[in-house]
Amino acid sequence: MGCSNVLTGVLNFVTLVLSIPVVGVGIWLAKQHNTVCVRFLQWPIILLGVFILAVSVAGLLGAWCRVSCLLWVYLFVMFVLILLLFVFTIFAFAVTNAGAGQVLSGKGYKEYRLGDYSTWLQRKVNNPSYWETIKSCLSDGKVCNSLDAPQYSTISQFNAAPLSPIQSGCCKPPSSCGYTFINATNWQETTPPPSAFAKDPDCALWSNAPTEFCFNCTSCKAGVLQDLKQDWRKVAIANIIMLVFLIATYSIGCCAFRNNRRDGGGGFFNGGRYGKQSHKF
């Protein structure tokens, strides 16, 4: 068996083993959790695990058992996967290029404006059905509960807090609205309201209700997009590393496929006329 066949088989055996816990996590989520966020995640996780499992089996059998038709299918899927991953990586960098937080004097956190982000991302969060799902996730995840802590009990402590983008946009009213601090999740509207109320619709959308807060504010949408931007940038960098790995694996798989054809491997693409050769990469 050629070295490339051995390497292809080993790599696919590893991914096959890794796909089993991925499927297990998806099934566990389906049985243990009922929130909207987790229901949204469980099926993609299960399908991803099954897909990796199926591709790994095809690559393993194609390389070690010399089943050339399976190896051909494996290489075709790998090529499509590399192409899709490359396109997604470029897209992720493009749509997350715009947008940044506004630094506020005397505060440890930033505030975010929806108009600073790409049009594509704005359309996503402005879609009512899409945003309702996100709001359910924010409510179910209790993203603002961590602010009810002793270290945020005074306005000076709160202003110095390094709030996350979602906490800054969704768990407090915008600073320009002039609300009076009671505690980190309880703010009192001043009377009469400042002129900012007329300029910023978010000012009238704040609620002290734990299920609402500023979840309907454009600042909350901007905070979600900033958080998404940070995550997508990390994913895009991971994708570049994955692309290098996949291209190397694909190249080794091509060598294994060539060995199968020369050695008369089974399947529709055996290419037996080349005769058998051994110890080829």
Rank of each mutant, 00 (worst) to 15 (best):
G223C: 03
T249P: 02
T191R: 13
Q188G: 06
I247Y: 08
N208R: 14
I247V: 13
D231G: 07
V244N: 10
A256W: 03
D227A: 14
C255V: 02
E189S: 09
L243F: 01
A256G: 08
P192N: 10
I252D: 00
T211F: 02
L205W: 00
D231A: 07
G223Y: 03
V235I: 15
P173Q: 11
A222M: 05
T180N: 11
S176V: 14
A204R: 08
A236I: 15
P201D: 15
K229M: 04
C254L: 05
Q226C: 13
M242A: 15
N208P: 11
A236F: 15
D200I: 14
T249N: 05
Q226M: 12
Y179F: 13
I237C: 05
E212Y: 05
I237V: 15
P210N: 10
D227T: 13
T190P: 09
N183E: 02
F257M: 07
T190I: 15
S175P: 01
Q188I: 06
T211G: 04
W232L: 08
K229W: 09
N183D: 03
F215V: 06
F215G: 00
K172P: 05
P201K: 09
R258G: 07
V224E: 14
Y179D: 10
E212K: 12
P174N: 09
N183Q: 03
L243R: 00
A196T: 11
M242I: 15
A248N: 06
F215N: 01
K172D: 05
I247W: 11
P174T: 10
C177I: 01
T190Y: 06
T180G: 06
F245V: 15
L225R: 00
F215T: 03
A248P: 07
I240F: 10
P201V: 12
Q230Y: 04
F257T: 03
S195H: 02
V224I: 14
K221S: 01
C214G: 13
N208M: 13
L243S: 00
T218N: 13
A238Y: 00
Q230A: 08
S175A: 12
F245P: 06
R233F: 04
C203A: 08
A236H: 13
F181W: 01
Y250E: 03
E212V: 14
E189Q: 10
S219K: 14
D200G: 04
V235L: 13
A248E: 13
